[in-house]
Amino acid sequence: MKQSNAYIAFKTRTQEIFSFAVIVTSSVPVLKHNINLFRGGKIDKISEPDYFQPSVIYDIKESTLKDLKENGLDESKLVLLQEIKDIPLNNREFKESVIARIGVTAYNANRNILKRQSKNYIANLYSSTSGYQAKLASYLYFSLFSYFESFISELTKEVIDTLEQLNVSQYLLNAQAIDSSKEYRDLTKVYDPKKIDRYRKYSQELNKKGYQLPKDLMFSSMLDSLKATSENMKANEIPTFLKKLFYFEMDIVDNETYHNFRNNRNSLGHGGTSFTPTLKNVTDANKFFRRISKKIDSHVTRHYMSLNNYQKSE
């Protein structure tokens, strides 16, 4: 059975956030282990972030001065470094302060010895791991619901894009420049079977001038309105929207479950404390949205998307 592009994108996005969750839940235990090794003096530093390096805090320790001396750094420069010993500095401040005292050449030559993270930085980093699963669960929960909202909007747009649609505003603009008063005058009069040939003639003339039936204009206008509605729809409107547009109705249990998820998402979005998700809550929500989105997509693609090879009987 054909799947919509919107559904394929939804599955991809949800898989990506769970892959990210696996990375996080694998990385944090490794980080905590390395911090314990650092605190125990078994390693000199821990891995630094790929992107947020300016957040790293360094300082010159007594052990740093000792290692620099063993590495051959001039005694006069070691004395100057004493001025900033045990002073926590961010990445830029640390580099500038050290270079100002020992020069660029010595800094580059001893960079690996010099750049040792501050104990305060390590402590702050370790404290940030506290409750990380709850924070991760909140981000995942919020993202998952947002992806479902996006799926409904994109699915609707995908259906609309498969339908033949007129550019109504351009049509009306062009119509103003065409004189069709004679045709309109005769074709709007009370029907007279004796004038059928005239009606056919004037109808053909109108067609040559690009005339479109009112129902086609209205249909195209309604599609524009529908697209705008789907793009600006609120989460609480989705079940009713699906019912009225696609005649897809959630059963009582699914409808209640959906609105429970929506209320929880709103609580998270507004900074509320009434709901604190766990990773188990996230996996449960994912199971629901994967199941319901598949049902919606199967229904819509079967009944509202054209069959590529369908041949209409003449």
Rank of each mutant, 00 (worst) to 15 (best):
A228C: 05
L245Y: 08
L89Q: 07
P193Q: 08
E75C: 07
I35Q: 03
K69P: 04
Y139R: 03
N167R: 05
Y184K: 14
E83A: 11
D284S: 13
I8A: 05
E231G: 04
Y147H: 13
L279P: 04
L163Q: 08
S274A: 15
P49M: 00
T229A: 08
T283N: 12
S298C: 08
Y171D: 02
P29T: 02
I296T: 10
I84M: 08
D179Q: 07
M250S: 09
V190P: 02
D251V: 14
E237K: 12
N236Y: 06
E83L: 12
R198S: 15
V168M: 02
T156C: 08
Q117S: 03
E314Y: 14
E314Q: 14
Y141L: 00
T229W: 14
D224S: 04
N263P: 00
K135E: 11
Y258K: 09
T240K: 11
K45C: 10
D186W: 02
S47Q: 04
N207R: 07
S267W: 10
K77F: 04
I252L: 13
L172A: 01
K61I: 02
V56C: 07
N108Y: 10
T229I: 14
Y139W: 12
P277L: 08
K157N: 11
H259Q: 06
E149Q: 10
K157D: 06
A134M: 06
D216S: 03
N207A: 09
L173I: 07
A100I: 01
M218K: 04
L163P: 00
F151N: 01
S19A: 15
V30F: 15
P49N: 07
T25G: 00
E154Q: 11
G131H: 02
K189D: 02
T129G: 06
R291A: 10
G41R: 09
T273S: 11
T105Q: 13
F288N: 04
L144H: 06
M218D: 01
L307V: 14
I160H: 05
A228S: 05
I99K: 10
K42N: 11
E237W: 12
D284Y: 00
R291D: 15
K85I: 06
P239V: 01
K85Y: 00
K234N: 06
I238S: 08
F10V: 13
E256D: 10
T64I: 04
G271W: 00
S293Y: 03
I113P: 00
V56M: 08
P239Q: 00
H299Y: 07
